[in-house]
Design a protein around this nucleic acid. Sequence first.
DNA 1: CTGAAAGCGCTTACAG
DNA 2: CTGAAAGCGCTTACAG
Lengths: 333, 333
Amino acid sequence: MTIKDIARLSGYGIGTVSRVLNNHSDVSDKARKKIMGVIEESNFQPNSNARQLKRQAASSLSIIVKGNQNMLFADILEKMQMLLSKNGEIAEVSYIDEDANEVECALMLCRERNPKGIIFLGGNLDYFDEFEGIDVPCILVTNSAGSLNISNLSSFYTDDEAAAYKVGSYFIKKGHKKIGVVGGILSATQISSLRYAGCIRSFQENNIPFDEKKGYVQCRFSMEDGYQAMKKLLKNMPDVTAVIALSDTIAVGAMRAICDAGKKVPDDISVIGFDGISLSNYCIPRLTTIKQDTEKMAREGVELMLRQIHYPDEGRDVSIPFKLLERESVRNL
Amino acid sequence: MTIKDIARLSGYGIGTVSRVLNNHSDVSDKARKKIMGVIEESNFQPNSNARQLKRQAASSLSIIVKGNQNMLFADILEKMQMLLSKNGEIAEVSYIDEDANEVECALMLCRERNPKGIIFLGGNLDYFDEFEGIDVPCILVTNSAGSLNISNLSSFYTDDEAAAYKVGSYFIKKGHKKIGVVGGILSATQISSLRYAGCIRSFQENNIPFDEKKGYVQCRFSMEDGYQAMKKLLKNMPDVTAVIALSDTIAVGAMRAICDAGKKVPDDISVIGFDGISLSNYCIPRLTTIKQDTEKMAREGVELMLRQIHYPDEGRDVSIPFKLLERESVRNL
DNA sequence: CTGAAAGCGCTTACAG
DNA sequence: CTGAAAGCGCTTACAG
């Protein structure tokens, strides 16, 4: 069933059918009615490849999410889609692996789907040197792209270094001196490096001794990895009293490992996570964590995108305030 | 940059360029080399809309996932993608809302992307009466489509009724008599209805009194909803000793609510979940749950899809055995 | 082995 | 308000 069939069936030309399909105003009511009838009856749906090919015009937005299982991104995505649909925009979302190249993915999207704009949930700055092929407005969320200085690339991010510094300082203020860090593979993700750097700075400024070899166990962002990393940390530092987990997911795994080692959170070991995903408020004990303001990231990101679609604009690089949520997983020493 | 430019730049015709692009054998080495050089140099990428429009031939598989935050589906998806890529197949995945119409989505995909086959992760049988427009092989996972009798629709599922029956009976065998059920909105999801029916059957066969009005609190599949539902159940049935949560996510919320009410799992109240997602093994206490065999679902689903792509075949409706994982959230009464 | 041409299903000036 | 026609960027018989 093609537009030709509809034209034949309705007795009009394909041009008129196309106009009806695209809601143009210059069609007689009679023609519109007749054609609509045939379309509905035959359940016709225009071929979107032909449509895209012809109009070369952008139809929707694209969102690229790094990681299938990332609960933080799932949260932001949900909020963004709500805002977008409230503004009459549709977004196609593509999930890629946590380590995959998002810019390559964006390039492909540009060719195939021709989006009006692209939102990246998570990103690795290393990949962005191929960015020149992309000329629609882009927004990167949770990472800063400020250092790249690309005019059609904005970013909304949490200051991870400062957040981690706050976590470290908080532990120290609570009297902790034997602090360990689990999670994040430094070479792979900027977020980990930034958070780790913040931890280190807090230790140094407060003269807290820290043995990088023993006190820091790298791992991927999953519960199982957090679990294994914590077990290792417990071996490296049997007297550890406070653990900074570089994400909530890792923290949940770490708390389980602490429990399995016969210790209690926070009585024996205190734990703080990052992100503030929903789970952090339902685990037992409730996790003290850095809450990223996903609400604000989603809102400001979408607003800027909507604006830029219409009026090309300078890129922005906006740090979104975070908050340390004090809950049940930390005790005073 | 189009195929025409490449033809001009290389001194060959567009037909030859196209043949090189599609790896046809009937091209001279000289031409291939020259053209490849130009392609690489100019970083040319064929327009996939034109390609799709022309060849009308299926290129990849599609996977439709119902729910962004569904950790069970994320797990199955990951396994399927691994298997698919091992077999040289690529799958495009589309996420839709937990309540959205997956058949509508599939129909759109068929028009736009022309997939070789479609895999549904989750599905609502009510939507499948519009299925006739789809004629590629389809696989539905975690639901049974057997009752539909559609020849190009197979399903791999857990027998939810039997699983719930087993959970109910297990509690009863452990001496529990005051049993509550949280989660799942019966009118919205078949899975909930099936699981609930299994619970009821176990109660009836064992003469356990059950007041549907008080003992069953419906809720959506999230921790927050599980939390609220459990609070309500606690009010309805202050003497409840065992809770069947219709998913692990709900169970985690429920355990938190129990804890906030000053009670302990499993000492005061036992909890069992469904699905066996990763989290169920890291929460405190570890959750006793029905483990769906995602490994097997993924493997058998992908295998059948691969076979059907090549040799059209009858649909199958296969129940995948589940397992009750006995962990730490249940006690003997 | 190669090129010229038809055609995939649409949209949109253009002419009436 | 409407139709005939050009053309989006490809692929693939067809003819050589």
